[in-house]
Simulated scan of single mutants.
Amino acid sequence: MPHKSHSARTLDANALKSFAHPLRLRIYELLDEHGPSTSTRLAGLLGQNTGATSYHLRELSRHGMIEVVPGMGRGKEKYWRIRPGGFSYGDPPDDLETAGAMDVLLDDLVRQRGAELARWRKAAHEAPAEWGAAGAFGRRSLRLSAEETARMRDEVFEVLERYRALSDGRADSSPEEGTGRVVVHFDVLPLGALPEEPGD
C-alpha cells in the first residue's frame, strides 16, 4: 500500500541516488544542525577542499534538497540552507540501483537517530531546565490492525507537519528569542508482522 506523503515533495529516483553519497549526507546534516553556511565553512568542518564541497552543494541544490539564502553573503559568497518544506523518500523503489540508494539513506537515518538520542541522553542535564522539561523519550508497544496503524501514523505526521510549517515560517528571520533546534524522531515499526527470529 503506498504511503501518504506528509512532506512538500517526494524524492524521485535520481534525487535518491544523488543524495545517497556520504559527503552529501554529511553536508545536509551540518546545514540542518548549524543553519545557513558557505562552502568554505563547510569545507573546513568536513576537512575537504572548497571545490569538492561546492560541487556537492550544487548537486544537492539541483535535486531540490538545499537552496541559496537570498540576501546573505557578500559578492560571490553564497550561503546555503536546507529547503523548507521537508521531503520524503517515498515507497520502496522497483529497480535495484534506486533500492540500494534508499538502503544507504535509511541506514544513515538510523545512524543519525542513534547519535542524536545518545547525545541528548548524555548531555540533557546540561540543558536549561525548561528545555530539559520539554524533551522526552517515548516508546509504546501497541496491538493494532494495519489500518489502525496507518491511521495513527498519518495523524501523528499531521501534527508534526503543523509544527514544521511553524518552524519553516521562521527560516528567513533571525533566530527568535526562546527558540532552538528541536529534533523529533517518530517511527512506526510493525515488528509483529515479521517472521520470528531464531531463539524468540
Rank of each mutant, 00 (worst) to 15 (best):
L31W: 04
D108Y: 06
L105K: 03
S37K: 04
P22T: 02
K17Q: 15
F157Y: 15
L45P: 00
A171F: 07
G135A: 15
G85P: 04
V182P: 01
A127S: 10
L189K: 07
H125T: 12
G64E: 07
E126R: 11
G51P: 01
D108C: 03
M1I: 09
R153F: 10
V110W: 01
R121D: 13
E161P: 02
H125S: 14
A123V: 06
P128F: 07
T149E: 14
L109N: 15
G132A: 12
V182Y: 08
L16F: 03
P22G: 04
D172H: 00
A171K: 08
Y89Q: 00
R24E: 00
A127G: 01
A115P: 02
R162C: 09
A193E: 15
A118C: 00
L16V: 01
A134C: 01
W131H: 09
L191Q: 10
I82V: 15
L160S: 06
L189M: 13
G114W: 03
G86W: 01
N14F: 06
L106R: 14
F186S: 05
L45S: 04
P22Y: 00
T98K: 05
E59M: 12
H6G: 01
E126S: 13
G44Y: 01
F186Y: 14
Y163H: 15
S167G: 11
E155V: 06
H56M: 04
P84Y: 08
S7V: 02
E147H: 12
V69A: 06
A165P: 00
R58I: 05
L109K: 11
A165L: 14
S18I: 05
E155C: 04
F157D: 02
A8V: 00
R113F: 02
G47D: 05
T40D: 09
A136W: 02
D103I: 01
S167Y: 00
E177A: 15
G71N: 12
Q48I: 00
P175A: 10
L23Q: 08
D95E: 12
T10A: 09
P128R: 05
E130V: 13
W131V: 14
Y79A: 08
N14I: 05
P92D: 11
L30T: 00
R26D: 03
